[in-house]
Nucleic acid binder design. Structure first.
Lengths: 211, 211, 211, 211
DNA sequence: CATGAATGAGTATTCATTCAT
DNA sequence: AATGAATGAATACTCATTCAT
């Protein structure tokens, strides 16, 4: 009898899948870097490929066009659950401050502001991308925040109120101080006094809507 | 042969200056149209020249590079005094609502949102432009609004308060509803109920800071 | 585990050879389809491999280059004896008409016109292919036709004459009506009245050379 | 008074037109050479531009795509009146032989066979080009030849007959000997004995249709 | 002063062929 | 033996900017 290891085929496939996924990840990382540095139009596919240590042809095996590659970079940024593990057994003030600080750190550390810049620039030529990003980065976050606030109301920690509007009041001023400036200055860092200002904002909020 | 009176050298010069200025204006108008339509990178200088009915060489006589041309387009958008002629002899609510509505109409009618999109996109490669735009379209407006609010305080119509913060509270939520969505969707129109919402925002403001 | 009987080494080899030949045939068929559809330069080796359900590497095991693969496709088209089984116990007119109709149906049904187009295109870069095709599709056919005509002369059904020239007179006008147009229009079908025209041509021929 | 020469503008325009037309001609000539040498797909626009001593951008100013450039090359080949100045006061034989020899020399000297090869190759992807070429190089020539034959009939030098068919009989065998081989061999020259064979063909023709 | 033709560097994308497993 | 991922060279086309007239 000749024995042919069945596993060998599977082993090869697994190996290939592993290599392939590693390359895909490498391309995505490089693309993110280059797009963030140069913007969509200026970014050169060849640069991304070089940075990712693959040939342009390999890049095109994974992503069928520059446009699709950028869309994948954007989608990749959605995949984070920002508010997981927030302690809910503290005061309403602490909870809301924590949520907002989470959001701000995510926005700065993950360079979401820079990504926003590029997506915004491409809105006329890639409107779907703009809609997706708005849904995932604006609407979705307000939905999460509303849910938290609704729970606080349910538990009697806040007066019942129009949470759709109220969370946007909160978010509006936070963005005014920490997001708008970052859109207009590439190297903006989150200021040290951010939490102090956020706390003041939350206190005003509690003045209006606290139990 | 064309005959040109020698005596009117100054007249000739004036004529020439006039023609030159007309061309400059024509170039600026065309550039604005094309940049707003195509974005910075995609916009073609040749398209702008054709649209302005001048040769590319003439365009380059007036603006030494594409970048400078775009900067001029942006600067051109600053030159409007939005709050001139606002009636001040009415209630605080009316005044503030009127100011905000002026701002919103200016933002939509003059296509400032589209311009913002492009400037934001170019922030990494043209940081000065980003700073200028932030100064002229964000900071300057808040300064104007603060001045108005300060006068209302002086006249006893509002409680004394931190106007720097307060106007950003106002502006933040207004942008949240009417500017952010417009950044992410090219064809956004100012909704009909804008004034109703603005009025509610202002009333909340007066709850906090009304005399 | 897969179990393979050791004793049947020859059986295994035969099996392998069979599989291999099946793959070769599959590649040839796919290559023919793709080359005919896209022409030589536009045809993609990857497309052919996919269509043949083999990997590109396997394809290259069988054919060492795209060029050689195409040459094999062309050679494959030679391997038909078009005039087998033509009845020879009828009149000269019937025989010659039948031969020409065979040729025309072969030319259209087997898509030889499309193949000719591609070979002709590649003549400057693959001159040998052009020579081969001329030998196999032009010269060989005239040789066959001449042999038939010679037999008719031998049997006293035609006057002795210069058959080399005469068959080209016949072939020339037939091609003029049915082959040239097909070279210049990809979707040309053999017209219904083809046989009627062929018959007239043959009668003229018999006017000149009939017994 | 200052005098401004009106002519200067026109002079400039004339100068420019001249330069422009010279470049256009240079591009067409280079394109013809390269296309004939390499075929359509293999021909590189950059090669053509280099050969024509212009930049690729200039080439694209004159011809908006590779396809259009090739179409222009083909159209350029139509613009010759092959049968002008043929003596008509000689025998029918001489006239017809002269016409056919003109055609053959035109076909070889102007490298129409090579052009045909490329057009034929592109028929599936550029069907209009194929139709045009067939109309201009096949149908048009038969029309011209028919007209000449019709005049010979009118002048009693030939029997009345179906000239549409008869000229194709003539043309068919001439192509069989001198055009088909040239399609399959790039370097084919017109053989020295061409006229002798043409004369025999014409004599057979006169056997059938002479007065 | 004004022109528009000309440029050359650059870009996204494709494809025949090879190679590690 | 068979795979399919990887390659690198090639290609059509674009565009900001300059320059001869």
């Amino acid at each position: 009898m000749m024995l042919v290891a069945e596993g060998s085929k599977l082993g090869l496939e697994n190996y290939r899948r592993g290599v392939s996924e590693a390359k895909r990840a490498s391309i995505l990382r490089a693309a993110r870097d280059i797009f963030l540095r140069d913007g969509y139009s200026r970014a050169a596919v060849a640069d991304i490929a070089r940075d990712a240590d693959v040939s342009t042809a390999t890049l095109y095996k994974h992503f069928s066009s520059k446009e699709e590659l950028f869309a994948a970079v954007v989608r990749d940024a959605y995949l984070v659950d920002e508010y997981q593990g927030i302690a809910e057994d503290v005061s309403a003030e602490e909870i809301i401050v924590a949520v907002i600080m989470r959001y701000l750190h995510s926005q700065y550390d993950r360079r979401i502001n820079a990504l926003l810049r590029i997506v915004i620039a491409e809105v006329p030529s890639a409107p779907q991308l703009g809609r997706d990003m708005f849904d995932n980065f604006v609407t979705a976050r307000y939905r999460d925040l509303s849910a938290i606030v609704d729970r606080l109301i349910a538990r009697g920690k806040l007066k019942p109120h129009d949470t759709h509007y109220a969370v946007r009041l909160l978010g509006g001023i936070v963005k005014e101080y920490f997001v708008w400036p970052a859109l207009f200055a590439a190297d903006k860092k989150l200021p040290d006094n951010a939490e102090a200002l956020v706390r003041q904002v939350v206190r005003d909020y509690l003045t209006l809507y606290g139990a």
